[in-house]
Amino acid sequence: MPAYQRLEVTEVGDVAVVRFRSRRIVDDVDIQEIGTEMFSLVESDKRMKLLLNFSTVDFLGSAALGKLITLEKKMKAQGGKLKLSNIKPEIYEVFAITKLNRLFDIKEDEADALAAF
């Protein structure tokens, strides 16, 4: 597995568990690089099961949501599964307002998400 600068990727069985190294995902450059690394997990590494653990993330804006939507599309096109977990209440509100909690499979914590693959 290649080294990632913006993401911390660990393997739990056949699931790639991704944590973010940035607490705030807002900066243009950060978002582009995070997007590139997430897409690489799907397109280059051909990961079929991806869990994004947001426990380290305190803040994200709509540009980051855009990257997540594109990631979901790429996973679906490849026949893979994407799940999200450990989202703080304020950030979950962002997903709820934009109704993206319907698009993404969001679980309370990592154990719940892993069990759901």
Partner: peptide, 17 residues
Amino acid sequence: PTNGEHLQIPGGRGVML
């Protein structure tokens, strides 16, 4: 952006938020 197929379009959520 919350309406039907727009849900899967990456942009357009800033003003709504």
